[in-house]
Design a protein around this nucleic acid. Structure first.
Lengths: 238, 238
DNA sequence: GAATTCCAGATTGTTGACAATCTACAAAGC
DNA sequence: GCTTTGTAGATTGTCAACAATCTGGAATTC
């Protein structure tokens, strides 16, 4: 027997989600997870077949993803996972830096003590991962930290624009992450300084720190581009 | 006889624009022009009939407009022109202020003398319209001035995000413009100061001025909300 | 008379079929 | 051998029909 809660959940799902939104979210997941790589072609009939729907909802999902900046459409040729060039990434980093500065400024004026405590907890986890040199632990924590900052401003429009930029950068990093960009040990000190400025309610300082923090990660990316692809650590040598 | 240029134009149009994009642009135009008011319901078959297409392309255009933030969809009930609440507008103004600051900072570092001259020309026209107390002349010039600033940064991502915010605010203003918001004479002095800071290459100053300029227009909006709707000028009285 | 139930019309969600276009490869011509 | 032309198969663009859902009012009940 199924619980009433599960039933109401199913009802809600049916009421809010059409096949189009389902397809859209599934494709979004596959793109952001890297299952679908930048440049990959999305076949209408193929996707429709695997998800057991007709081509209509798939095409509608395509148009939504197109507006969201995750795919690119060529008429009569098909849709492709968006490829973010170096120049594109540069632009996106600049805008993200601007939004980060705004986030710092707004959040410093509104943040609650409980949220400061929460951020400090997050910092501890990140420092632990950094000491352990664990990128796979550190990377999602870092993304989560910045996302939480955006969320805590209480400005949903800001959050939406911020997330879109982060998604697009994620699309770009997929190609370059292996090159050793986002060298994480550097960031922990900057993160601490940001949280402390927020705790003091110093909006200008927090904003400035966050702007510079974002611009530095852009610079790190440029530096990483000079390195050879997939550089192996020394211990691999005899 | 039709010229070769006209032919190539037609070919290009056919190659790049599907019915979906045509419908999309047409609806976008109608929404932003106010022909379709916020909250208005968009009937699939009605629109399809008017534009002489089937419902498929119309539905695809709906999904694109939804992602673009211009319409809202309720499952099994239809799509409606987005209504931007006061709180929404507040959020949007905040983000726009952040982007404006960024625009000022970036542009000061990159602007060319020819562009400074162009902006000064624009300022002259705006001052002329302001002196004439002509809102219908001033308003589009003002929008164009800020759009041009965003464009001159050379950052297309920034421009896209900026334009989206402006469009959303436009949707909001439609309900409140008549109340006397955007009292324009105030702005001309600020605009001059911005252009001068840009000309000097003073990014921090230009950014600060643009941030404050945007925040002030938000405040003016709030002040305008206190006024009665559609206040008539005195000369209408006997 | 007020509230509820039921039904018909309208509208949206989804599907499958048809038309237009592209891609890749084979055949023909130089 | 290289380019060009032509064609078959695959893929996208568009449409029209069917199914599911909603809306508003008439009929029914209390």
């Amino acid at each position: 027997m199924v619980s009433a809660a599960a039933h109401s959940h199913a009802i809600e799902l049916l009421q809010s989600h059409s096949l189009t939104t389902l397809v859209r979210h599934e494709l979004e997941r596959r793109i952001l997870s890297g299952e679908l790589e930048p440049g990959a072609k999305l076949n209408e009939e193929g996707i429709a077949g695997t998800l057991n729907v007709s081509r209509g909802p798939v095409r509608e999902a395509f148009r939504a993803l197109e507006s969201a900046g995750l795919v690119r459409t060529e008429k009569n040729r098909g849709v492709f996972v968006r490829e973010v060039s170096v120049d594109d990434a540069d632009e996106i980093y600049e805008v993200r830096a601007g939004l980060d500065e705004l986030i710092g400024r707004l959040l410093a004026a509104r943040i609650q003590p409980a949220h400061v405590a929460e951020l400090r907890e997050l910092l501890k986890k990140m420092q632990k991962a950094a000491r352990a040199r664990s990128v796979e632990d550190y990377y999602p924590l870092n993304v989560g930290f910045h996302d939480r900052l955006a969320e805590l401003t209480g400005n949903r429009t800001l959050l939406a624009h911020y997330r879109r930029l982060v998604n697009e950068l994620h699309l770009y990093r997929r190609e370059t992450l292996a090159r050793g960009a986002d060298s994480f040990p550097i960031s922990t000190r900057e993160h601490s300084a940001i949280v402390e400025a927020l705790a003091r309610g110093d909006g200008d300082r927090a904003g400035k720190l966050m702007y510079e923090h974002a611009m530095e990660s852009r610079d790190r990316l440029h530096a990483a581009l000079e390195k050879p692809l997939l550089e192996k650590p020394l211990k691999d040598k005899p």
